[in-house]
Nucleic acid binder design. Structure first.
Length: 927
DNA sequence: ATCATCACG
DNA sequence: GACGTACGTGATGATA
């Protein structure tokens, strides 16, 4: 047997407790809780697969007593019993270890930590490297250049530097610090009044515990000196308690830890019994990949490069036969709308896929027989072995449009743009239409929310245990990146066909989860039909008047220059106004202004708008001017200049990309450029909206939901007072003010209304007294009283908040009124600060997400409703509670009415939905 | 790549 | 009793 080179020692007991607390409750069909088993098993798989360990063992505690109780009877005496839904998981976890054929050690009278210390010593003496898998601070004393620690749950490694950070001393002095500081959790007494900080300081000064205790009389602080003298013996006992034994007569030799392949049936049987379907899929795929059978029939053998029409027709016939086909397009650029089609891949069954290269060319500068560098075009020589793009697309067109064949893509919006463009450019029959369709990226998001990313590579790894060929492997990266068009056909097929193959396999897997996880309705009625709607909106774009932007940009630039010279004069020197660091130094170091705060992270002065506003209010001119400059700089760089550059020269319009799989609440996001954050709150900023204009002969229509989030709150929390106010079409903030401040509605002035409005917003955000106080500029006591009065006026809201939090704690997610899952990571955090964050997010998610669901329903219903009324009006943008549309002048009134009605009827809640519609030549005048 | 800042709902 | 927070995004320029 080979000598150990890298030994992994897993602190089993420690891991179980952390997995139990970190993961939301899970149960088998028979009710047995399994969350800790799941966490443990995933960790074990990850460890076996991803590390170079040749020896692995899991070490457990056995029994509650150890030799330490003989030294000090109270050691770990106050440990509470394990939670009752954890107890039945202990035997399952040992079963998991056995199923994976991993060594497992426990020993009466010793803690797991002692066994780990012993094996670590033996391994290093045998010349091996050791990794301890644990986050237990008591094991940190073992860290050395040969022994590392890794925290699998936080995915970080703990080296000597991390130990110094934790204990203030290197690993070999940790026990001295622990002996002094004691540990209330383990009931190690230590020396009263000395914590880790002080202990580290003392040990650093005196070298070690014994020296310190001998020279305790030298200590200056009388109390500390007294303590150290009086409790010297207690410190020595504590040191014994925290010192790990590395000389235990272990029951299993280190050599028995050698990694062994698990028995297929045993592992699969175990995973199946626990109903760990995702792990089961992963392990099955891994075992299949490793089996000799798979080696004889490599998956690539089924990937075919299509070079003639007969072969293409056979693939199309196969897709027709299957009724489902995964489709992926390859392009010469990343940007979907301008990109040229380079090839198409299809998959008809798992492992069975093809690539149809259409526009590959010889790499630039590598043309054969070229004796001189010709112009770039000369290099763009079409490679042989490719179908004529127009001909191939003509064959594909009926398949893509066939109502009997489902086309599945991964982020299919991208492929739809590419195919539309290719159809328009390369054929006489116009854009290629794709229907019906589904999208594995969207499916993954509907099922798992933000629990993980939704890129194909990540999903293939997660669900299929398959590492895809990285794009960078075929195209390179950075400066030397080449276009996919320059990738040789064999490599292109390996990459592209794999993408289609993976897409199809993911589709089958994810599709199958919808029903069981009760997500079918959300997927089928909200997200899946929205894909096509968003594609249309992105393709439509919105007209932006470059001349307006240019004028604004010039105006902003002039005013910024004036402000800049004035500010430099006030500062007495020139500096980069755009640098918060330099500004902070000018304001607080050089000018000596008071009230600055250094950030704890970087030690830089904070110069945010709030800080500058306070200084400006105190009468300082410089910060006031900086605020003006900042506003203009923001508008110029982010909006006037960037938007002008984003105008597509082909359409004269700006085309954003909407993402459906980004947010934790179900909202969309917009990027490249972001058209969901165009300024409106200030007069100066609003001018930008004048540049967003309707096409000639058209008008922009802006329709936004009024108070949609408060209405959803009234509905989900069944708040009688709010429901009544909305039913009566009253001013909701004024009514809130009346109820909270105990006035008649006609006694509410604008100040009270403003405060009530802030409270209403706060409630939606999962209010805290601190946040409300900051918002209103009042003290926390007053804010607290407002909140109490609010909950008294609307008691159902408090109940809603509590039930929502409890639901999230139990399940790890919350649901919107339409069934969408929103993940709530951190909801069971021990740190009250982090937990608070998660709780507020959990309270907000059903409200924000419910509003997102409603506007999605309206967006899906709108195209049909407009067509039904014979209207050509089309949607352009969505800004969370607002839709922007473009209507021919002569149908503006009719369209406005259809839009209003469609939005208001998009959902039927216990409160009415109200949409307000405006019309104008520009977005500024329509809003 | 990360931070600080600030635009939106 | 202190901690330190309003919810959700994306783009920019500076800086490491």
């Amino acid at each position: 047997m080979a000598a150990p080179r890298h030994v992994y020692l897993i602190d089993g007991s420690g891991f179980i407790f952390r997995a139990y607390h970190a993961l939301p409750p899970m149960n088998r069909a028979d009710g047995t809780p399994t969350n800790a088993v799941y966490g443990f098993t995933s960790m074990l798989i990850k460890l076996i697969e991803e590390t170079g360990a040749d020896h692995v063992a899991v070490i457990f505690d056995k029994g509650r007593r150890s030799f330490r109780n003989d030294i000090y009877p109270d050691y770990k005496a106050q440990r509470p019993d394990a939670p009752e839904d954890l107890v039945p998981q202990f035997p399952l976890i040992r079963e998991a270890v056995r199923a994976f054929n991993v060594a497992c050690v426990e020993m009466e009278g010793f803690e797991a930590d002692d066994l780990i210390a012993t094996y670590a010593r033996q391994a290093t003496e045998a010349g091996a490297e050791v990794t301890i898998v644990s986050s237990d601070k008591d094991l940190m004393q073992l860290v050395s250049d040969k022994v590392g620690m890794v925290d699998m749950m936080k995915n970080r490694s703990i080296d000597a530097a991390a130990v110094v950070e934790k204990f203030g001393v290197p690993p070999d002095r940790v026990i001295d610090v622990q002996a002094l500081a004691g540990d209330s959790v383990d009931n190690v007494p230590g020396v009263p009044g000395i914590g880790i900080k002080t202990a580290a300081k003392l040990i650093e000064e005196y070298g070690d515990l014994e020296t310190l205790l001998e020279r305790a009389h030298e200590i200056k602080q009388p109390k500390r000196r007294q303590s150290l003298i009086e409790f010297a013996e207690q410190a020595r006992v504590s040191r014994q308690l925290v010192t790990l034994r590395d000389d235990v007569a272990v029951p299993i030799p280190l050599t028995d830890f050698a990694v062994q392949k698990p028995e297929r049936e045993t592992v699969l049987g175990f995973l199946e019994a626990q109903a760990f379907s995702s792990l089961l899929a992963k392990i099955t795929a891994r075992l299949d990949a490793d089996s000799p059978q798979a080696a004889r029939a490599p998956v690539e053998a089924a990937y075919q490069t299509v070079a003639d029409l007969d072969t293409l027709d056979r693939w199309i016939a196969e897709a027709e036969e299957a009724g489902v086909v995964a489709v992926d397009t390859e392009t010469d650029r990343l940007d979907a709308r301008g990109a040229g089609l380079v090839g198409v891949s299809l998959a008809t069954a798992p492992g069975r896929a093809c690539y149809i290269p259409l526009a590959h060319r010889a790499p630039a500068g590598k043309q054969q027989g070229a004796l001189f560098d010709g112009p770039a075009e000369a290099a763009a020589e079409r490679l042989p072995g490719q179908l004529d793009p127009a001909q191939a697309l003509a064959r594909l067109r009926p398949l893509l449009a066939d109502p009997g064949v489902l086309k599945v893509g991964h982020n299919i919006k991208y492929d739809l743009h590419v195919l539309a463009g290719a159809g328009r450019r390369l054929t006489d029959d116009g854009p290629l239409t794709v229907s019906p369709l589904d999208d594995t990226m969207v499916l993954s998001y509907v099922l798992d929310g933000t629990a993980h990313g939704h890129g194909m590579d990540e999903l293939a790894e997660l669900h299929l245990a398959h590492k895809t060929i990285p794009f960078s492997q075929v195209c390179g990266k950075g400066k030397s990146q080449i276009s996919f068009a320059e990738v040789p056909l064999d490599q292109a097929t390996a990459y592209a066909a794999e993408d289609a193959d993976i897409t199809l396999r993911l589709y089958q897997l994810l599709r199958g989860r919808l029903r069981a996880e009760k997500m079918t309705a959300v997927h089928e009625t909200l997200d899946r039909p929205l894909v096509g709607v968003l594609t249309e909106m992105e393709a439509a774009g919105i007209r932006v008047d470059a001349a307006v932007l240019k004028d604004l940009s010039g105006d902003f630039a002039r005013r910024m220059a004036d402000l800049e010279s004035h500010i430099h004069e006030l500062a007495g020197r020139e500096f980069n106004l755009a640098s918060p660091k330099q500004l902070g130094e000018v304001l607080f170091d050089e000018m000596g202004l008071k009230g600055g705060k250094k950030s704890s992270k970087t030690g830089a002065w904070g110069t945010g708008a709030e800080v500058l506003e306070t200084l400006a209010a105190e009468g300082h001119d410089l910060p006031a001017r900086v605020l003006d400059w900042r506003q203009l700089a923001k508008l110029k760089s982010t909006y006037t200049d960037a938007l002008a550059a984003a105008i597509d020269p082909g359409t004269g319009r700006v085309h954003t990309t909407f993402s459906m799989t980004v947010t934790s609440t179900g909202r969309l996001s917009s990027s490249d450029p972001n058209l969901q954050n165009i300024p409106i709150r200030t007069e100066e900023g609003r001018k930008i909206r004048q540049a967003f204009v309707a096409s000639p002969g058209h008008r922009l229509i802006s329709a936004d939901y009024s108070q949609i989030e408060l209405r959803i709150l009234a509905h989900v929390a069944q708040v009688e007072g709010l429901k009544q106010a909305f039913a009566d079409m009253r001013d909701i903030h004024a009514i809130t003010a009346a109820k909270v401040f105990g006035k008649q509605p006609d006694e509410v002035d604008s100040g009270l209304r403003r405060q009530a409005k802030a409270i209403n917003f706060g409630i939606i955000y999962g209010i805290s007294a601190f946040g409300l106080a900051a918002q209103l500029g009042i003290d926390r006591g007053a804010a607290k009283r407002f909140i109490d009065d609010y909950f008294e006026a609307f008691p159902e809201i408090l109940a809603y908040m509590e039930t929502t939090k409890a639901f999230a704690r139990k399940r790890g997610y919350v649901r919107t009124p339409f069934g969408r899952k929103c993940m709530t990571p951190g909801i069971s955090e021990k740190n009250p600060n982090l937990r608070g964050f998660a709780e507020r997010a959990a309270i907000n998610a059903p409200i924000q997400g419910g509003a997102a669901d409603i506007i999605k329903r309206a967006m899906i219903a709108l195209p049909g409703a407009l067509v039904e009324h014979g209207l050509k009006t089309r949607s352009l943008l969505q800004v969370h509670d607002e839709l922007v549309l473009e209507a021919p002048e002569d149908e503006v009134d009719a369209a406005s009415e259809v839009i209003r009605a469609t939005m208001e009827q998009a959902a039927s809640l216990d409160v009415p939905l109200i949409a307000e519609v405006g019309v104008g030549a520009s977005w500024a005048s329509a809003h």
